[in-house]
């Protein structure tokens, strides 16, 4: 799904040239769930941004689903982000004046799907994440966990191939974090490739592989026991599998909501 070869990236800030990524090679298979770990400034976020076509790279090669990502114009990049990728940002990044449903529906707005239809789909997704009753609330009226689930719903709604999550459990208590990881795992089991950036070992253990980045290079790639069992039926049609999975999810979240 994602293949990068010898990726280099440096930031120039006045006189200082900061070499953030120093030749990264990585293959991520379709349906894999991996975590990227590393200390602050190690380049893990930069790598995620390059995966997300939010940032460009200076040198090397990046293939997303077999096609090379190089010198894309903004329009193509936006279309790719919209169709292929789902983002779960560290700080939720919900639009403050749109309610939960409209936030979730936003990517479909950019696909020019009409309002009625996209809001219906958005409601379905919110329902799966146990947030149906909160659909018409503004982000400011939601708790941290709820906001994060809205953000996940927004990432899921375009049925992307890859979900990129930056510190998805940051600022959540351990119980909520656990639930969040269960949720992400279930999503992954529907066949969506999941890339999580985190600095918590507990979280990383939930994934199949952990990639440790230190100082711009890959230090080691660890296969995790807990997350390593391959989800079955990965090749099945994604949506049906996901609906089945999310039914369980909904029950789980009814308690919380």
């Amino acid at each position: 799904m994602i293949k990068i070869r010898n990726i280099h990236k440096s930031y120039t800030n006045g006189q200082n040239n900061l070499h953030v990524l120093k030749g990264i090679d990585l293959d991520i298979e379709a349906g894999e769930m991996i975590s990227i770990m590393g200390p602050s400034g190690s380049g893990k976020s930069t790598l995620l941004n390059i995966f997300g076509i939010l940032d460009n790279y200076d040198d090397g090669e990046y293939f997303l689903d077999g096609s090379r990502i190089l010198h894309l114009n903004e329009r193509k990049a936006a279309l790719l982000r919209n169709r292929m990728l789902g983002f779960v940002f560290q700080s939720f990044n919900l639009i403050s004046f749109k309610n939960a449903m409209e936030n979730v529906a936003l990517p479909l707005y950019y696909q020019k799907i009409n309002r009625r239809k996209r809001n219906k789909i958005a409601l379905e997704y919110l329902d799966k994440l146990g947030l149906k009753e909160w659909a018409h609330h503004l982000p400011s009226e939601l708790s941290g966990g709820q906001k994060r689930r809205v953000a996940i719903a927004r990432a899921l709604i375009t049925q992307p191939k890859v979900i990129l999550a930056d510190e998805p459990t940051g600022a959540l208590d351990s119980v909520t974090s656990q639930e969040m990881m269960d949720l992400l795992t279930e999503i992954n089991q529907t066949g969506i490739t999941m890339i999580i950036v985190t600095h918590e070992l507990d979280i990383a253990r939930h994934t199949q592989k952990t990639i440790r980045i230190i100082d711009g290079t890959i230090q080691e790639i660890v296969k995790n026991e807990a997350g390593s069992q391959k989800p079955e039926g990965r090749s099945q049609v994604r949506s049906t599998k996901y609906v089945a999975a999310s039914n369980v999810q909904q029950k789980k979240y009814e308690k919380v909501a």
């Binding site: 329009r75 936006a78 982000r81 919900l94 403050s96 936003l106 696909q111 375009t158």
Partner: peptide
Amino acid sequence: EIGIQRAIGATPVK
């Protein structure tokens, strides 16, 4: 906000 919109697929034209 515009950054968010672009990240989730708003094209420059949009």
